[in-house]
Write a protein that binds this DNA or RNA. Structure first.
Length: 801
DNA sequence: GGGCGATGTCATGTC
DNA sequence: ATGACATGACATCGC
């Protein structure tokens, strides 16, 4: 069912994306808000009112442990978690409201009124969780559990916003702000600050024109969280009217860079290219990659590159590139893989409270975004928390290279009807990015189709914001890893250790999720018996096969400690030490598995011959059926055949001794007693079988350990995979950032170049190229393309270096 | 009554 | 050679 739901949800999302791409507005909100339980439950999961089976796994969570799946305490539990998360987020620079609030802010700024003009639908549509709340005031946070990955959201509950969005209380607190009624003074102040920032950045109020916004909203209403995220980021960047990257003025309509708008450039005549490059290198933090990236020739890109004042034409649309989409798809798949991983791990991974604390350790600004991402991972599309937090960033412009600051004002006012798209996130291009000698390839990366669903590449974003966003997203992934990792190894391990100390191990196992066989078992093995190499041996020592002296004295304990204990492997705890425990568990009364191979029955019999020893199976069975087993009954019941045989044969010592004594002592024992041949044969058989029994137990335990270790290995590999994916995205992000910087610097340098007559070089006709010796040439494009393979010997107008 | 898991036992191989 | 151990296969038991 879970898979069904997942597939259906994904399919629905994809279908919705498709519809959105072809211009059909898909108002998921209405569907969801119309209270179509099946659909909503399929997408968001059943509410706790219907079923809470999804929360069985909460037993594996730290906080959820001990809460019965059907306990009404669940709601309390989630409320507690939500509040706890809020407390944890106090140390973060985060606006308590969700992204919805951001929309509110801007929408209100449009009307220059209070945030009360917020439009619920478009926003809530972006937030599936919010949707749920809107029409389901009764819906408790527990409902989120129905999303199929409840722990995922709670695990990494940096997504406290998600909680709040879902929880009724959260609606009052956060959604309530959505309702504009509960704006606190801080909120209003923040709104005002944000608005003033926008104004300062040159974004006029017309920027927030409602029609534009609505248009954009339609784009953003695509269920695809990443896409809408893109849109949001784009809006944010555009709203700020600045390329926050600071490096590149952008035509608001085309996304094309507009070097001519750089103030002062026009007055600068023939700035030395070397100077420019020095400037460029000084400002361009290549970091480890350091060396100025080998320029690349991307012909398509180059041909389309023509950022000129006169033109101001949309170049981006001229660059339809299938590759970026492929890459986007790839990255999307990666994300989905991570999500799936998470979903898979959800059952295995307890919801570690630490994860939230871990979130708390992440960047203050990013935390909420992280949370949102989590929310989206919970199978609910969306989340655009970003813009709010971005907007709340103090002095984000400080990240800009100082030299670009002058551009801000002029650029920010740039009218814009479409979202600027600055960079590509083409991972496939990345490989070729620094390969050849044409800088334009890097400097003018292909513009991505606006409809592309690129999670990782949110190229439109100005750098500081995009950086923050991407980092937050990546941190999200890392948190995911952490949740998978630490949630499993620490929280769950410790929890299971607690379980080992509790009597609830059996019942826990009964609710054991089939999807998480390894988790408990692994933890059990780690906690109880650990690896087969360490604890096993110690246990074997305790068994006493080798320590003769202990055999007689420690016998009573052997049954509980000895060798292979199925209770430890399967139930984490099922001990015969205290049989009375079973009486407290009525449903276990009838359990009569023979776990007593190490119990000192025979020894007890040997040392207390007066004890009645069962003489036949039938007798034992009768007692089984009686279910009124006394302690003695249990002992009798577990008398092995060999013990009965030994008694029948009047063997004068216990089977324990027969089995566990070292050979020498065993032989001495035999010699000490004058035994008949049948007695000797029986004793030897008993010893053989007894040893083999323990050997079999150990063997099975080893098998189990092996399986557990393999499962752990699988888990580790999955975690590594997620980590590698995260790293990959980080690399992609950094490369994209570098490309953006290089591009803007290229524009900067190129725009300042002047020929002998002081005229600028038209970018459509010239491009910069690196030569092999490190010099930079400005070459005509026709030559560039025609003589790409030749050594550039042409147009050595400005030769640098 | 059969399936299934846990356990015991045997046969065999290895050290 | 012998004892201890490991392990696959099968049997038994109880649910």
């Amino acid at each position: 069912m879970l898979y069904l739901k997942k597939y259906f949800t994904e399919g629905l999302i994809q279908f919705t994306i498709l519809l959105s791409l072809i211009g059909v507005r898909v108002d998921v909100d209405t569907y969801l808000n119309n209270q179509l339980p099946p659909l909503r439950e399929i997408i968001l999961g059943p509410s706790s009112a219907y079923t809470q089976t999804q929360f069985h796994n909460l037993r594996n969570t730290l906080d959820g442990y001990g809460i019965h799946p059907k306990s009404v305490d669940l709601d309390h539990f989630f409320t507690t978690r939500r509040l706890l998360n809020q407390v944890r987020q106090l140390d973060r620079l985060s606006v308590p409201s969700t992204e919805l609030n951001t929309w509110l802010v801007h929408r209100d700024s449009e009307t220059v009124v209070s945030p009360s003009s917020q439009s619920g639908p478009s926003i809530t549509l972006e937030n599936g969780a919010g949707l749920e709340d809107v029409n389901n005031p009764d819906a408790t946070p527990a409902m989120r559990g129905g999303s199929g990955a409840p722990e995922s959201t709670y695990n990494l509950n940096a997504a406290d916003s998600s909680l709040g969005a879902v929880a009724p209380e959260g609606n009052q607190e956060q959604g309530g702000r959505d309702g504009n009624d509960d704006l606190t003074k801080e909120d209003i102040d923040l709104i005002d600050i944000l608005w003033r920032q926008d104004i300062d950045l040159g974004a006029g109020r017309e920027v927030f024109n409602y029609s534009n916004r609505q248009k954009e909203n339609e784009e953003e209403q695509k269920p695809n969280p990443h896409e809408s995220k893109d849109g949001n980021e784009e809006q944010e960047s555009w709203r700020n009217g600045v390329n926050l990257q600071g490096v590149q003025p952008v035509d608001g309509e085309t996304g094309e860079s507009i070097p001519e708008q750089l103030p002062g450039i026009g007055s600068q005549t023939s700035l030395s290219l070397q100077e420019c490059l020095r400037l460029l290198e000084a400002t361009f933090p290549f970091g480890e990659e350091s060396e100025f990236p080998a320029p690349v020739v991307n012909r398509e890109i180059v041909s389309n590159e023509a950022p000129s004042t006169s033109q101001g034409l949309p170049l981006a649309p001229l660059l339809p590139s299938a590759e970026p989409q492929l890459d986007l798809e790839q990255q999307w798949q990666d994300i989905m893989a991570i999500m799936e991983l998470q979903a898979m791990e959800v059952n295995n991974t307890s919801v570690p409270t630490n994860s939230s604390s871990v979130n708390g350790t992440t960047g203050t600004v990013e935390s909420n975004t992280v949370g949102n991402f989590e929310l989206s991972t919970g199978s609910t599309p969306v989340n655009q928390d970003v813009s709010l937090h971005q907007a709340s960033l103090p002095s984000c412009s400080q990240d800009f290279p100082q030299i670009f600051n002058p551009q801000l004002d002029s650029i920010s006012i740039t009218p814009r009807t479409t979202l600027p798209r600055l960079s590509s996130s083409n991972s496939s291009n990345i490989n070729s990015t620094f390969g050849t000698t044409n800088l334009t390839g890097i400097f003018l990366p292909p513009h991505i189709n606006s409809s592309s669903n690129n999670i990782t590449s949110t190229p439109i974003l100005p750098d500081p914001f995009s950086t923050l966003l991407e980092e937050s997203m990546l941190d999200e992934i890392s948190l995911l890893d952490l949740a998978m990792e630490e949630g499993f190894s620490q929280a769950q391990a410790s929890q299971l250790e607690d379980e080992l100390d509790s009597d609830s191990g059996l019942s826990l196992d009964s609710s054991h999720s089939p999807a998480s066989p390894s988790s408990s078992e692994t933890s059990c093995s780690s906690a109880a018996s650990s690896s087969s190499t360490s604890a096993t041996f110690s246990e074997e020592g305790a068994v006493g096969y080798s320590t003769d002296s202990e055999v007689t004295t420690v016998e009573p304990e052997e049954g509980a400690v000895g060798g292979y204990q199925p209770g430890y492997s399967k139930l984490c705890r099922m001990s015969y030490q205290d049989p009375s425990q079973f009486h407290s568990l009525p449903h276990l009364d009838s359990i009569s598995h023979n776990h007593t191979y190490n119990l000192p029955l025979s020894s007890a019999f040997a040392e207390h011959p007066e004890l009645p020893i069962p003489t036949g199976k039938k007798n034992v069975r009768d007692k089984h059926n009686s279910k009124l087993q006394t302690h003695q009954d249990l002992l009798d019941k577990h008398a092995s055949r060999d013990e009965r045989r030994a008694r029948a044969m009047k063997i004068p010592f216990s089977n324990e001794k027969i089995i566990n004594l070292p050979v020498e002592e065993f032989n001495e024992l035999l010699a000490k007693h004058h035994l008949s041949e049948p007695q000797l044969a029986l004793i030897r058989d008993i010893r053989r079988r007894g040893k083999n029994k323990m050997a079999a137990q150990n063997c099975r335990k080893r098998k189990l350990d092996t399986i557990i270790n393999l499962e752990q290995g699988v888990h580790d590999l999955r975690r590594d995979k997620a980590r590698l994916l995260k790293e990959k995205m980080e690399f992609i992000r950094s490369i994209r950032q570098m490309k953006q910087k290089v591009q803007s610097l290229y524009q900067e340098v190129f725009s300042q170049l002047r020929d002998e007559e002081g005229r600028p070089y038209p970018p459509s006709e010239y491009s910069l190229q690196y030569s092999a010796d490190g010099s930079v040439l400005i070459m005509p494009r026709c030559v560039t393309t025609a003589e790409q393979n030749r050594k550039p010997e042409k147009k050595q107008k400005d030769k640098k270096k």
